[in-house]
Design a protein around this nucleic acid. Structure first.
Lengths: 192, 192
DNA sequence: TTAACATACAAACAGATTGTATGTAAAGAG
DNA sequence: CTCTTTACATACAATCTGTTTGTATGTTAA
């Protein structure tokens, strides 16, 4: 049984990413050792360092994949929706659903920023979930006849609030209350 | 020249905390090695491990001290103020001033949560800045004749927004815009 | 088809780092 | 003045990371 190089690479890389994801989620980035990762993936450290520049690069691959999955989950649910306000809240709900997958808050909101830096994570995020939020907010502000001069700042603040809500939900706090609080915040922005 | 044990401990511990703070800020927690810390502090690793259980405990000491400093700076500026709304915004400004001290965003908002965990950082924070926010928000909501059922959730969301604003300010974005955005958010909450 | 090369990986190595264990001098108690 | 405790310094053991070296398998082109 012989496999092409492409096939070999593909299966090795994804085995590494999956094993790494599990360990990063379970023990965090710092406490996860590369020998454990490769053991779980069924390869050796040689394979890891052949496909990734270093441990951080493997972590980045895990996080990027995760961000894409979240973006895809939200996109997929992008109902045509009713009012811009409802679209915004539906987007929030979709985001919380997506972030409910175990380990995502840790990967994307805890270890991600610390390991990759705010800048990197911001870039990964901006192209994904945060862009959607900005568009939704812009539409809602426009519909409410409000200025969009602060759209950048408001998007950043709301995005942070969403992230914190996701964390709180995972910590066991009432999702209903947090969604209502988000709605309250959004309504405040849109009220004349 | 002989010093009492208390004096020796005091000076060693604070030398360690100060040296560690500088290095944690400059290079981050993971990239900072204990030999570098003790060299900068003018002691040996023996002293470090005598006074702190491990590297993480030293980091925790640094962060706790920082959180207290922020809380004190805000407290100190707690002008009797005018309306609850103005008190809230003044608190925000005080928070941004306090967080402007170099390294604080990295210590408290980036490495802190990753190294100590959300729970620990949440606890440290709750007893400090976040408690003040909760009180201010409760007062403002009461004055506006609004329900305070969601006070916990709203405090968490606003606190996250404040943190993100502090990060954005450090990244060079317009503080004026961010403060205005915060004010917009707050006003939305208080409008009938 | 086969010689030349590139790719994928395994295994061994070097340096650095963390926490511990051991040794010593100074302080404090009785 | 002895005995104990505290505050360190130094040496050590166990990892862990990134690099290097070696090998087998896949790919390409004459």
């Amino acid at each position: 049984m012989s496999r092409s190089n492409r096939e070999r690479t593909e299966s090795t890389v994804s085995a590494l990413i999956e094993a790494a994801r599990a360990l990063f989620v379970e023990k965090g980035y710092v406490e996860t050792a590369t020998p454990d990762i490769v053991a779980a993936a069924g390869v050796t450290r040689g394979a890891l360092y052949h496909h990734f520049e270093d441990k951080k690069a493997l972590f980045r691959a895990v996080v990027e994949r995760e961000a894409q999955a979240v973006a895809a989950a939200i996109e997929e649910r992008a109902a045509p929706a009713g009012s811009p306000r409802e679209a915004l809240l539906a987007g929030a709900a979709a985001y919380f659903d997506a972030m409910a997958k175990e380990g995502r808050t840790r990967l994307m909101l805890l270890d991600g920023p610390a390991v990759l830096g705010f800048a990197s994570i911001g870039a990964i995020d901006s192209e994904n979930a945060e862009g959607t939020l900005r568009d939704g907010l812009a539409a809602a502000l426009a519909a409410a006849g409000k200025s969009d001069r602060l759209i950048g700042a408001l998007t950043a603040l709301l995005s942070a609030a969403f992230d914190r809500a996701a964390i709180a939900i995972e910590a066991g706090e009432s999702r209903a209350d947090l969604e209502t609080a988000i709605a309250t915040l959004a309504d405040g922005l849109l009220k004349p």
